[in-house]
């Protein structure tokens, strides 16, 4: 049965290794936004042995490119983007201490294997619920690559940000499990 957890970042390996595909998690604390272009730069920095714009240890990275904030708001609409575009970068970030990713859509086997090896979790947030999810973000600050516009790296403070465990540290995949339950074979 799926469980519900309330977790605060940074995540510890003993926390992530408890989670199972299908569990609901409400995340609070600081998470970081990054999409394809930012991921490429972060991974390049790792390969060059340079310092990253934020501490990877226990970090949760949110695949999001928000809309511009309306006056007085910290951020605009901010739902997840499709995650496979980050597949070639995510294992490196997990290897270097990141513990969570938030996105939507399928991941490849390399990412699933990296989740098992390094205690990482792939969380899904509801795609297309950008207005709802944006409201769970209490502050946003661009900390790197402002020239990337919506794709810049942001430090986001979130409160009870609702996500579901898609890929856990045991190799399970909620998308496969869910589909097997409801597929009608002809």
């Amino acid at each position: 049965m799926s469980k519900t957890y309330y977790l605060t970042t940074p995540l510890l390996e003993e926390q992530t290794r408890q989670l199972k595909a299908g569990d609901i998690v409400y995340l609070s604390g600081v998470i970081y936004s990054a999409r394809d272009a930012a991921h490429k730069r972060l991974v390049d920095l790792i390969h060059e042995g340079k310092e990253l714009p934020f501490d990877l240890e226990g970090s949760v990275i949110y695949f999001v490119g928000p809309t511009p904030p309306k006056p007085g708001d910290p951020i605009g609409s901010a739902g997840p983007t499709t995650s496979y575009r980050m597949d070639s970068y995510s294992p490196t970030l997990l290897k270097h201490g990141s513990k969570g990713m938030i996105g939507k859509g399928k991941r490849n086997q390399d990412v699933k294997d990296a989740c098992i090896a390094y205690g990482g979790i792939y969380f899904g947030a509801t795609g297309g619920a950008g207005a709802l999810l944006g409201k769970q973000i209490k502050s946003a600050e661009v900390i790197a690559y402002p020239e990337l516009g919506p794709e810049a790296v942001r430090r986001l403070e979130v409160e009870n940000f609702p996500v579901t465990v898609i890929n856990d540290t045991f190799g399970a995949d909620l998308y496969q499990m869910g589909r097997e339950l409801y597929e009608v074979k002809s």
Binding site: S77, A129, L132
Partner: peptide, 18 residues
């Protein structure tokens, strides 16, 4: 959640999706 999102977007004039 998708329907709640649509209600929030309409009431508060926030983009439905980023």
């Amino acid at each position: 959640q998708i329907l709640e999102n649509a209600d929030i977007a309409k009431d508060e004039k926030r983009p439905l999706c980023q």
